Amino acid sequence: MGKTRRHFHTFDALRFFSFLLVFLHHIPVPESHFASFFSKSGGVGVIFFFVLSGFLITYILLEEKSKTGKILLKKFFVRRVLRIWPLFYGMILFAYLTPYILQFLNLSSSNQGYNPNWLMSLFFLENYQMMLTNSFPNVSPLRLMWTLCIEEHFYIFWGIIMYYIPIKKVPHLILGSIITASVFRIVYLYLGLSTLDLLTNLDYFAFGAIPAYLLIEKNEVIHKISSISISIKYGIATIILVLSFMIPNLSYSLLYNIAPVLYGICFTCLILFTLCYRNELKIPDNYWISKLGIYTYGLYLFHIIIINLLLRLGDKLELGIAWYSFSIIALTCTILISMTSYYVFEKPFLRLKKHFY
């Protein structure tokens, strides 16, 4: 099958926005500053990553199955490996060397969290190690890799399920996934467990699968949504943006079960608005936010390393940099390193993907 899949404009921009939410969450913003209101939405950024991933993976699998009647599962997994594994294992190697690097730079290491179990890290099980210890690894960027573990588990689970079930059963899979995650979140809350596994995050991917299914199988729905005026769509998008910052600042226990569904519905709508044939929400590929979105994988993994390194250097040199200046320096360094990583290290592996379509 040739690589003729639809290009989704705006998605790179949405990825970069999701990264910015995570980045702001890790910046040392003073609690007394109004900006702290915006720095609490890191989890929302991760959720949006999951929803986007659910859409793209479901679209890829459904598009292949609808055209050929089958899914070449081996090639699908190889493409995922080429995208995820090189930088993932590069970061594990960096994390392993971190104590020696800090010692060489005469910088202090973290005394918070657990010493990594490298076997758990290597086999995409860091999220379960964090759940078992109710803590986080003491080296960067391992503490972020629970999300990549969930992504990897999703690829395997979703790929195998989609391989076997007929397309007409996909809505049942989506609904079952949403119910499953909701139930397991309640169970984990009762047991005092962190929601850091696929079972408690599966609904986010499932919500992303909804627009993918509609695009492939129910295209008339996309046409109907296209008829909604652009002003209404921008109004809804603005409400979604406001909710993304407002909900994390609320502490009502009821939100524990309501917020995931609300996020899922909101982000599903946002994706649908970008898929419209007219009156679509569109951020062109030549905009800076879209161009930076290409490097999101590296941005996500490198930013925590840069932030922690700059914090330690600032403490050692007693620089006393204001948090906003610190943010600009950290973001600039993260972007430059991520761009270098993409073109020098990641792209050679990405070029190999063309052999597995």
Score class of each variant (00 low, 15 high):
3 K>R: 14
16 F>M: 06
16 F>T: 06
17 F>P: 02
17 F>A: 15
19 F>P: 02
22 V>P: 00
25 H>C: 09
30 P>T: 06
30 P>H: 12
32 S>A: 15
32 S>W: 13
35 A>G: 01
37 F>W: 12
42 G>L: 04
44 V>Q: 09
45 G>R: 07
46 V>Y: 00
47 I>W: 08
48 F>H: 10
50 F>P: 05
55 F>N: 12
56 L>Q: 04
59 Y>K: 04
61 L>Y: 02
62 L>W: 06
70 K>R: 14
72 L>C: 11
72 L>A: 15
73 L>N: 03
77 F>E: 10
79 R>V: 02
81 V>Y: 13
85 W>S: 13
86 P>H: 04
89 Y>L: 12
93 L>M: 11
98 T>H: 09
99 P>H: 05
101 I>N: 04
102 L>V: 01
103 Q>H: 13
104 F>L: 13
108 S>P: 00
112 Q>C: 02
113 G>V: 00
120 M>H: 14
120 M>Q: 14
120 M>C: 09
121 S>K: 02
122 L>Q: 02
131 M>T: 09
131 M>Q: 13
135 S>R: 05
137 P>F: 03
141 P>N: 03
142 L>G: 05
143 R>T: 12
143 R>F: 07
144 L>W: 00
150 I>C: 02
153 H>A: 11
154 F>M: 11
157 F>R: 12
159 G>C: 11
163 Y>Q: 08
163 Y>C: 06
164 Y>T: 12
165 I>Q: 05
166 P>F: 01
167 I>Y: 01
169 K>M: 10
170 V>T: 12
171 P>H: 02
176 G>D: 09
177 S>C: 04
182 S>G: 07
185 R>N: 13
185 R>S: 03
187 V>L: 15
194 S>C: 09
200 T>C: 07
202 L>S: 08
203 D>F: 06
204 Y>E: 15
205 F>A: 03
210 I>E: 01
210 I>W: 00
211 P>W: 05
212 A>R: 03
216 I>S: 05
216 I>M: 07
219 N>K: 12
219 N>P: 00
220 E>D: 13
222 I>D: 00
225 I>V: 15
232 I>E: 06
235 G>L: 12
235 G>N: 09
236 I>M: 04
238 T>I: 14
239 I>E: 04
244 S>T: 06
244 S>W: 06
244 S>N: 10
247 I>E: 07
249 N>H: 11
253 S>D: 14
255 L>K: 02
260 P>V: 11
264 G>I: 13
264 G>A: 10
265 I>P: 07
267 F>E: 06
268 T>G: 04
275 L>T: 07
279 N>A: 02
279 N>E: 04
280 E>F: 09
282 K>S: 15
284 P>W: 09
290 S>Y: 05
290 S>M: 08
294 I>D: 00
300 Y>T: 08
302 F>S: 04
308 N>M: 14
309 L>K: 02
309 L>I: 14
310 L>V: 07
312 R>M: 10
312 R>K: 15
315 D>P: 06
315 D>Y: 15
317 L>P: 01
328 I>S: 08
329 I>E: 09
331 L>Q: 01
331 L>I: 08
332 T>Q: 02
335 I>F: 10
339 M>L: 13
340 T>N: 11
343 Y>K: 13
345 F>M: 00
346 E>Q: 09
348 P>E: 11
348 P>W: 09
348 P>H: 05
350 L>M: 11
350 L>G: 01
350 L>V: 10
353 K>S: 08
355 H>W: 12
